[in-house]
Design a protein around this nucleic acid. Structure first.
Length: 214
DNA sequence: ATCCCGAGGG
DNA sequence: CCCTCTGGAT
């Protein structure tokens, strides 16, 4: 099976299983999505959603974050883990947004990845969700699921992004990645995947391989 | 002990 | 390529 065929099967199966591909982070503007996604590193989005109401109430805009006392930001986000680097990144990012981007979140991959703490994963998520551009968001779920399905046998997120970009219809890629996350949490989790209830088992390489050996 | 919608640095 | 940052959940 080619990756294009695999992609087409996976897109259809996930679309049926998860009709609305919603972003599970709660946000009300581009800055909040940018910050919430940064906070989601090594942390569940559920926990991010627990801290952001107070965080965005304490610091309502770019300037409030840019002028923030770092220890106050650290305190708000502490339970998300990696809180020192995240707090430093968020403040530095907002200072750059204020000083170089007119206070607005930019809409290109090049500009977004210049921001402190924003890598390809977060940048692509913002491009897709805020600016509705074709984007392949390669996070821990995307890496794990596309590998199990048989798209690749890689670890490098950039290489995986290129392979998926090549295999996917650009109009579908953003929703596809969101649905991979939903499926990764609900069924194809890292520790104990529930293969018997998976909507993609009939063409999943890992499942088929395990069946053959049992 | 291992993983959670990562990013940066060596 | 590797390592580090980090609390919370299982």
């Amino acid at each position: 099976m080619t990756n294009k065929e695999r992609a087409s099967l996976a897109v259809a199966a996930l679309k049926k299983e998860y009709p609305d591909s919603i972003c599970s982070l709660t946000y009300h503007d581009p800055l909040q999505l940018l910050i919430s996604t940064r906070l989601a590193a090594q942390c569940t989005d559920l926990r991010v959603n627990m801290v952001t109401p107070k965080l965005f109430s304490d610091f309502p805009d770019v300037c409030a974050f840019a002028d923030a006392d770092i220890s106050a930001v650290e305190e708000d986000i502490r339970t998300c883990g990696l809180y020192k680097t995240k707090a430093r990144d968020i403040i530095a990012m907002c200072q750059m947004l204020r000083d170089e981007f007119g206070g607005k979140v930019p809409d290109t991959l090049e500009e977004l990845t210049r921001l402190p703490g924003i890598g390809r994963k977060t940048a692509n998520l913002v491009l897709g969700d805020i600016f509705h551009k074709p984007a392949v968001v390669v996070d821990t779920h995307c890496i794990r699921l596309t590998r199990r399905l048989g798209f690749h046998n890689l670890k490098d997120p950039y290489k995986i992004e290129m392979i998926l970009k090549d295999a996917l219809d650009p109009k579908e890629s953003n929703d596809f990645c969101h649905r991979l996350v939903l499926h990764g949490r609900a069924v194809c989790d890292a520790r104990k995947p529930k293969c018997e209830q998976c909507c993609m088992k009939e063409f999943c390489e890992t499942y088929l391989e395990n069946e053959k050996n049992s």
